[in-house]
Simulated assay, not measured.
Amino acid sequence: MKIHVVKMGGHLMNNHKSLHNSLKAFSELQGHKILIHGGGKKADFISKKMGIPTKVIQGRRITDKETLDIVVMTYAGIINKNIVAILQSYHSNALGLCGADGNCIQSYLRKISNIDYGYVGDVNVKSINTHLIKFLLINNIIPVFCSITHNGMGNLLNTNADTIASYIAISLAKDFEVELHFCFEKKGVLQNVQDSESYLKKINFDLFKKMKKNHTIANGMIPKLENAFFAFQNGVDKVSIGLPHHLNDVNNKTVLCL
C-alpha cells in the first residue's frame, strides 16, 4: 500500500483560491493520502485583529495561553473544517482531526532551554497512533490533521505541522511505501529568495547545511528542511518540497536526495 503524506501551509491556508486549487490537486492524488496543515498566517491575522502580539523565534511561534486559544480556534476550527468541507466537494471523504481526537497524536511539553516556547508540544514516533490512522485509510477515509496535539493530561499543545508530517510519514514507513510532500507557495527551495524561478531540482543534506550557513535559507524554511531530511533519513521513500499542483510532477519541485 502506498501512502501520500501531504503537509500544506504558508499562504495556501490564507487565500481562498489557492486553498481550493491546492485541495483539488490533493484530491487527485492516487492511492491513500493524509493531509496535515498549519495556519500560521491566518492565526497572525486573527491575533492582530484581537490586539494580541505574535512572537516568532527562529521560525517557531512562541505560544502563551492567549496565543494557544487563538491557534486552537484557528487551526482545529476555522481552517480544519473548511478544508474538510472543500475536500468533500471534490468527493474526497475527509475527517478533520486534532491530536486529541482518538488519541491520534500525543505530545509532550517542550522543555525550557534558552528559549521558553510556552504551550508547545514535541512529538516522536511513539506519539503517532498508527493503528487508528491505518484503520481510517483502509476504510477510505482521509485524515486531515491540524497541528494541535495533546499531552494525555488534558492539555492541548501547539506543535509544528512540518514535524507532525515527518513523524506520521516515518511511523507509517515501517509498513508501507510512503511519499512525503511539503506544499507551500513557492516552487521549491530557492537559491535566491528574490527569484521565484531559482528553485533547486534536487538538494542533499550537505547542500542544505551549506545554504543554512550562508543564510541562503532562513526562518521557517530551516525547520521545514530539518524535518524533511529527518524523515528522508528515517525510512520515508521520497520527500519533496514545492507547489501543491505539482504533487504528481517530479520535475517541478525540489526533491531530497542522498
Rank of each mutant, 00 (worst) to 15 (best):
D175C: 09
A173T: 01
Q191V: 03
T74H: 13
D206L: 13
L156G: 02
N234C: 07
L19Y: 04
K187I: 04
I170H: 01
S89V: 02
G31N: 10
G38E: 13
I70V: 07
A231L: 10
L207S: 04
I203M: 15
F26C: 01
H245V: 05
V189W: 14
M50Q: 11
H245I: 09
N192S: 12
A76F: 06
N80E: 03
T254M: 09
G10M: 09
V255A: 01
K213I: 02
L157Y: 11
Y117L: 05
L68I: 13
A25G: 03
S27I: 03
Q58V: 12
V236A: 07
V250K: 14
H91C: 08
N160Q: 10
I52D: 09
F205R: 08
N114H: 15
V84C: 14
L180D: 00
G9V: 01
Y108G: 00
N129S: 00
L137P: 01
N21T: 02
T159A: 01
N103M: 08
Y75N: 15
F230G: 08
F232C: 05
G235L: 02
M153D: 06
V189Q: 08
K24D: 08
N234R: 09
G99I: 02
I83H: 06
K212I: 02
N204I: 03
I52F: 08
I70T: 05
H16A: 11
S22L: 09
L23R: 01
H20G: 00
T54E: 12
Q194I: 13
T159G: 00
I142N: 06
I128N: 03
N139A: 11
A100F: 09
S166T: 05
F176L: 08
H215I: 07
Y119R: 10
K201D: 12
K186G: 00
A228Y: 07
Y167Q: 04
L157V: 07
N192Y: 11
E28S: 11
K7V: 03
A228E: 03
I3S: 04
K186A: 14
K24M: 13
I168T: 04
K213M: 12
D101N: 11
K41V: 12
Y90I: 09
L156F: 12
G154S: 10
F205P: 04
F184Y: 15
T159Q: 01
N158V: 00
K212R: 11
K65S: 14
K81E: 11
V236F: 05
V189H: 13
V255D: 05
V144M: 07
N158M: 06
V193L: 15
V123L: 07
C257N: 12
K210Y: 08
T74R: 12
E28M: 10
G121H: 03
T163H: 13
S47F: 13
G220T: 09
M13C: 11
